[in-house]
Structures are given as C-alpha cells and as structure tokens.
C-alpha cells in the first residue's frame, strides 16, 4: 500500500472521529463525496464508530424525564424524501460549498497561470482554492507542515503520478514537488499547515515577492 494512501487513510479516520480542524474536515468530507472508494472506507469506519457507540457504557443524564418531556414537546417534522437537488457539474462538493459560504470570490495572482482564492486561516491551517491554467506549472516548493490537495476539476501530474477529480494528495514537509496542470487546467482545494508554501528556488522566491509587492497580492 503506497504511503500516500496511508496518509489519506489517517485523515479519513480522523474525520470520522471528528478530530480534524475545520478546513481539513471540509477537505476530507469533499473527498468522500467525490471518490466512491474512499467513501466506502469512510463508511466502514463510520460503521465501526457506530458500533462503538452501541457498545460503550453511558453516563446517566442529569434529568432524564425532563429531557424526554422537552423532546416530546417538539413537533415531528414530516419530510418526504426529496430527490437529490440538481447540481451543475461545476458546483463545489457540498462540504466545500458550506465551507466557502460567505467568503469573497476574490482570485489573486500567485504565479504565471496560477490564481488563488483565499478561504481563511483556522488555527494552524490555511485553506484556499487554486486555479491553474492548462499546462501551468507550480514552481518547485516545500511547506513547513502537511499539505493536502483535492482535485475538484481538471487534473495535474506531479512526477510520475497524475491526479483527477476527487483525487487527494497529502504531502509532508520533506517532499519537494512541482505539479503541472493537465491541458484543460485544474481547480484544487488545498489546506496547508504552518507557514505555508515556500518556493524552492531563490529566483522563484524573489519573483514571487516582487509580484506580491507590486500587486499587493492581487
């Protein structure tokens, strides 16, 4: 089993247990929506967690009867099963649509052919959408912590691996990588831990700093 799958499996397990910070939780939930094999694995772990809930001992409520009375005071809601809402192929996965709700559609220059839409920080994690033009190349870079990337549409390749919609890559601080977008371009959701992405070449860093200085990051 490739190490990359292990890292993804760890994240799926942490998601099921509700231990992920919100940006990573949204990323994994979106991955599970998009990738059936991952969803089967996630559902298996959910089943395990459900069984654990059934078997574990409980802690008595402070006032069981009052709690029950309060709930009986609520009117049951009759909700006939609805057919799934029609979703356009470009629509974000539901988990991401919820996560991006209320953030501005603000695309900023990163590098030639690459734009990013910041989605904010949460604790140690920075989330953003990345749009890479066809054939666009992200300069070789490293990060100080974990980087998780979910392909939403299009695709990219990195070394000898290629990634399409629903695919997840998880890389650590030691990995240098330089993804290249497929001809149709690529839209990704990325979550980066720590100080964020650091370009590997001094020239790359100098150009990126200059562009940021001139454009104010836009």
């Amino acid at each position: 089993m490739p190490a990359a799958d292990d890292a993804a499996a760890d994240l799926i397990a942490a998601h099921v247990q509700g231990r992920l910070p919100p940006p990573l939780d949204a990323l994994i939930a979106a991955h599970l929506e998009m990738a059936p094999a991952a969803r089967d694995f996630g559902d298996a772990l959910e089943a395990l967690a459900g069984r654990a809930l059934d078997e574990a001992p409980g802690v008595a409520l402070a006032d069981r009867d009052a709690a029950l009375e309060r709930i009986f005071g609520l009117a049951p809601v009759v909700t006939p099963p609805r057919p799934p809402a029609q979703r356009s192929p470009d629509a974000l996965p539901r988990a991401l649509a919820r996560f991006t709700e209320g953030t501005p559609e603000d695309w900023r220059f990163v590098w030639f052919g690459i734009r990013r839409r910041p989605l904010g920080r949460s604790g140690d994690f920075t989330a953003e959408l990345l749009r890479i033009a066809g054939g666009g190349r992200i300069p070789q870079h490293t990060h100080t912590g974990l980087e998780a990337t979910l392909v939403l549409s299009g695709g990219f390749s990195d070394g000898d691996r290629s990634f399409g919609p629903g695919d997840l890559t998880v890389t650590g601080p030691e990995d240098h990588h330089a993804p290249v977008a497929d001809p149709e371009g690529c839209l990704c959701f990325t979550v980066v831990e720590g100080a964020g992405v650091r370009l590997s070449s001094r020239l790359g860093r100098a150009v990126a700093d200059l562009v940021t200085a001139v454009t104010g990051g836009r």
Binding site: D43, E46, A47, A49, G50, R51, L53, D54, I71, F72, L74, A75, P76, V77, V78, T79, P80, P81
Partner: peptide, 16 residues
C-alpha cells in the same frame, strides 16, 4: 424524534 423518517436502515445502523 422530529426527523425519524429520514433515517434509512438500508444505509446504516441507527447508532452510525
């Protein structure tokens, strides 16, 4: 209590 109709036993156990 309010949405029991949305639970589908074909998809998961109630505990899950």
């Amino acid at each position: 209590w309010t949405k029991a109709g949305l639970f589908d036993p074909a998809k998961s156990s109630l505990a899950t």
